[in-house]
Design a protein around this nucleic acid. Structure first.
Length: 918
RNA sequence: GGUCGCUUAGCGCAGUCGGUAGCGCACUACACUCACAUUGUAGGGGUCACUGGUUCGAGUCCAGUAGCGACCACCA
């Protein structure tokens, strides 16, 4: 090659990295080459992650971007480590959420689902899914997620539907699924039952109404009425008793009395039950078994009638008498008015309480009595608890284990039937002839009892989380025993957000244990929540969201009422930034400008790579085996640093310390590699230099290794440079020149660099760095022109130190811009020289006649003050008997050595100051 | 009511084993022919929320207090 090759590359490669051009190109290449695809390989260990399936209705938000970046980092790292890495992707049908979205689009066309009927409606949802369901999948691809897209699944596809029915039937046969008439959480807007954990409790300002219930005249005692406090007066229309505490002396006489329910006129008993807290309100509680969970239980204990007064649409039923047909809240107002008018409202107090709301539409939840299907959770939960206690499941950070266990320990039966149309239909059929229930995997043609063909399937569908709970094995082909199932299950780790620990994580563990006899994952990493720059959750209504797609591709985004234009940051910059902000699952306050961090780093690395290409293209690499003894100091140093960094970053990644992993690489790449190594190596790369072939070889290798280490977090950029490096140095390596993998995504993770570690070289280098920094500082303080060549004197405290510095003279001369350097032991300070005092040495920089004595004096005085403070503290410590008798010897030795060194420096500084005074 | 997390430089945050407090941004000064101004060099900036305890020694461990945040909870 000729030197014009370097110029050619310089012209071809832009000075700024252009992610918008590079990233789509590599995405296509990876997909086309099957680089993401995995098949079971008995010779390799599997490493599986199942994606938390995003809702088909979803579009990528910053939480997804973070969560999936972390998963992709782990998967790419595993793939490079030679594991059979498989990331199972897919989407969730998200029952209520999706049905709501499609209903809304129907409403825009003036339609309601009832008008078009169930079959047509479900067809429309499928059509909607076909049209929009791939949006988030494409966004994940664009982010660089290396899922095995050929295996993509959907929670309602054929295989998963089959798994759902199988699970339902087996749980039913095991006695773990049952049907019952219970009080469940009902959303009057979504028109369906919900599970307990689908309710969000929101603290609301409300009132406590004190209502007088007249007592039946025939009852003895002078009392005319009992006062009852309630937060929900409208439910009184369904009261079937009043209750007092059995030991409450105020009401002993009245136990067994009869009260007259106002408005309705129904006679209701006054019962005694320990559920009543005598200290709250009046100590008398109204009992409404059909509208309150506590009262429901009381109703069972006392065999009370259950009267439903609020219907499924949130309006009052016929049982509410004259209020029938009225909305529940309107009824409350009207009823309170009436009680006021009739003198039965004793008083109204302000009272805050937590109101249950639907997690999908925020409507106030109604406890509602109805026939539903339930899963018995206790037996399933106990196995999950035991497995966790035995250590089969580990949370990272560990604190989430407690939260997860607390939920499992207190879990109540799970209502799984939903009165919506979009979802897995419950596999139960009722016989019109004999009423028998047939529970079956395949649609039965006749009643199992009377053989009547007149069967009707249960109209309800299953909770979305029912199918999600099966995700780690249903996606692998269960209930068939596929090669995938036995190879990839259990998965390595689950990465998810904390808000679905109950919904999803706990249920996957239960189902995995029940059906696979093994936890579905050994570890659960809970990532933090992304917040806006003010610490608020991102939401549409707040207009504070940051769209990852806009950050990746550039464009306009509306925030806080204003339109902002964003440049193209690229997926790598987004990934890098998110990764660097991920510390121990802490929440992340994010502002769009934070992505500058990632962009700047990648651009810096781009230019460093550009430099490498330009310089080595015109050189031929040394072909023999490289031995440390034959390498220059600079090359030995960078290889030693690289060895340390390989070790550290690998460990940090293996223990999910994402922030530390990128920080280690950042400091090595930007600091050691760019700021020091590239600067030092410039002269060695001169085509005339005899060192050029060796240094080019080391340079190519270090860049090669660095690209591998960075690949998991910035896959596109590193793959692009990898392909350029393949042109500049098609064969590279240290022991011998070899052909690296054609694509970085499948290249081997660096390891086994221990033999290149050299602590002595690293120590010497840090001495050189100190000297260089000191000289530069003097240059800056005295405004010496950056290009002026200086002659400096270095005086060391020992001969040993002086000798080690001799080897570094070239380096110091080059990077500090020196004309020449004189090294000696305890060399006196030249006149008219500025000085720097540091560990083991002083540097003197002669100033061409014009030294500003005052500036130098101030410098020395400040330095002296700091060092004297340090000595004071050290003296206190070293004269403390307790310290001397109890602190470990190595700490004491270190402190004594430090004191001696600082004292030496103080002595030097004083002499310098005195010399200036003369 | 209970549980958990956070409080360190102007802002956003690291800080593994208790042993000389760090990073990024912002700020100040200087420097654009020579990979990179999305850059380089140098610099300023801290009572580690508060109180007490353990310890020779505490940002770090323990207890408590305050503020902020999250989650759980059927007191009407």
């Amino acid at each position: 090659m000729t030197s014009s090759d370097g110029d050619l590359i310089a012209n071809e490669l832009p000075k700024h990295y252009v992610p918008g051009e590079v990233e789509p190109r590599w995405l296509e290449r990876w997909l086309d080459s099957g680089s993401y695809h995995s098949t079971p390989d008995p010779d390799k260990r599997p490493f599986t992650i199942v994606i938390p399936p995003p809702n088909v209705t979803g579009i990528l938000h910053m939480g997804h971007a973070l969560n999936n970046t972390l998963q992709d980092i782990l998967i790419r790292h595993a793939r490079m480590r030679g594991l059979e890495a498989m990331w199972m992707p897919g989407t969730d049908h998200a029952g209520i959420a999706t049905q709501n979205v499609v209903e809304r689009s129907l409403a825009d066309a003036g339609l309601h689902r009832d008008a078009i009927g169930r079959e047509k409606f479900v067809e429309k949802v499928w059509a909607w899914k076909e049209k929009y369901g791939s949006t988030i999948v494409n966004q994940l691809k664009r982010l660089g997620c290396s899922c095995d897209w050929e295996r993509e699944r959907f929670t309602m596809d054929q295989g998963l539907s089959r798994a759902v029915r199988e699970v339902f039937v087996r749980l039913y046969q095991d006695g773990l699924i049952y049907r019952g008439r219970r009080l469940i959480n009902w959303c009057v807007r979504c028109h369906t039952a919900l599970a307990d954990d689908e309710i969000e409790h929101v603290e609301k300002h409300s009132q406590l109404w004190h209502i007088r219930y007249p007592l039946k005249k025939s009852d003895k005692g002078g009392q005319r009425f009992l006062t009852v406090a309630t937060t929900r007066p409208e439910t009184m229309l369904g009261d079937t008793a009043l209750a007092v505490h059995p030991d409450d002396p105020r009401y002993t006489e009245l136990q067994g009395a009869t009260a007259i329910l106002p408005v309705i006129g129904r006679e209701i008993p006054v019962i005694a039950d320990t559920m009543v807290d005598p200290t709250f309100g009046s100590g008398v509680v109204k009992i409404t078994p059909a509208h309150d969970p506590n009262d429901f239980e009381a109703g069972i204990r006392h065999d009370l009638e259950r009267i439903t007064v609020i219907g499924p649409d949130g309006t009052m039923t016929e049982m509410a008498g004259k209020y029938a047909g009225l909305d529940r809240f309107r009824c409350r107002e009207k009823l309170v008015e009436e009680l006021q008018d009739t003198g039965l409202l004793e008083k109204v107090e302000d009272h805050d309480n937590a109101v249950g709301q639907c997690y999908r539409c925020d409507s106030v939840i109604e406890p509602y009595l109805s026939e539903q299907w339930f899963v018995s959770m206790r037996p399933l939960a106990e196995r999950a608890i035991a497995a966790t206690r035995e250590g089969a499941l580990k949370f990272v950070p560990a604190r989430w284990e407690k939260v997860y266990l607390a939920w499992l320990e207190n879990v109540r039966d799970w209502c799984i039937s939903r009165q919506i149309w979009w979802g897995h239909r419950i596999p139960v059929w009722y016989c019109a002839a004999c009423g028998e229930m047939t529970v079956a995997i395949d649609t039965p043609t006749a009643c199992q009892k009377c053989s009547s063909p007149n069967l009707t399937q249960d109209p309800d569908v299953l909770d979305t989380w029912f199918s999600s709970a099966l995700w780690p094995f249903s996606t692998l082909g269960w209930p068939e025993s596929t090669p995938e199932l036995s190879y990839y299950y259990p998965t390595a780790i689950l990465v998810t957000a904390r808000d679905i620990i109950y919904f999803w994580v706990a249920r996957m563990v239960m189902m995995g244990l029940h059906f696979m006899n093994e936890v579905p994952f050994g570890e659960v990493y809970i990532n933090g929540t992304i917040l806006d720059e003010n610490g608020a959750r991102m939401s549409k209504s707040r207009e504070n969201g940051i769209d990852p797609v806009v950050m990746i591709q550039g464009g306009t985004q509306r925030r806080f009422g204003k339109d902002f234009n964003y440049e193209v940051y690229g997926a790598d910059a987004v990934r890098y930034t998110l990764c660097s902000l991920t510390t121990d699952g802490q929440d992340i306050k994010l502002a769009p400008t934070r992505f500058d961090m990632g962009r700047n780093f990648i651009n810096k690395m781009w230019n460093a790579s550009r430099f490498v290409m330009i310089r080595i293209s015109s050189l031929s690499l040394e072909t023999g085996s490289l031995e440390r003894e034959n390498l220059s100091f600079t090359n030995r140093w960078i290889l030693s640093r690289l060895a340390v960094v390989i070790d550290e970053s690998s460990q940090q990644l293996a223990s999910y310390r994402f922030h530390e992993y990128v920080k280690t690489l950042y400091e090595f790449a930007w600091g050691d590699f760019c700021d020091w190594y590239l600067e030092l190596v410039k002269p060695e790369l001169n085509p005339d230099s005899p060192d050029a072939p060796v240094t080019a070889r080391v340079l190519a290798w270090v860049l090669d290794q660095l690209l591998r280490l960075l690949h998991p977090v910035t896959p596109f950029f590193t793959e692009e440079v990898w392909s350029l490096l393949a042109k500049a140095a098609p064969r590279r390596g240290l022991a011998e020149l070899e052909n690296p993998a054609p694509l970085l995504i499948r290249a081997a993770w660096p390891l086994d660099a221990e033999k290149w570690r050299d602590p002595k070289v690293e120590d010497d280098m840090s001495r050189a760095m100190n000297a260089i920094r000191a000289i530069r500082a003097i240059r800056a303080k005295f405004n010496l022109p950056p290009k002026s060549r200086l002659s400096v004197t270095v005086s060391t405290a020992s001969r040993d130190y002086a000798e080690s510095l001799e080897h570094l003279a070239g380096i110091i001369t080059a990077l500090a811009g020196l004309e020449d350097m004189l090294i000696g032991v305890n060399t006196p300070k030249p006149s008219q020289a500025a000085s720097g005092v540091m560990d083991g040495m002083q540097v003197y920089v002669p100033l061409a006649a014009l030294m500003d004595v005052e500036v130098e004096k101030i410098r020395i005085t400040k330095d002296l003050a700091k060092k004297e403070d340090a000595i004071t503290a050290l003296n206190r410590k070293l004269s403390n008997f307790e310290f001397l008798s109890k602190a470990p010897q190595n700490i004491q030795d270190r402190e004594i050595a430090r004191k001696d060194e600082i004292n030496r420096q103080i002595q030097e500084l004083k002499e310098l100051r005195d010399s200036l005074n003369n």
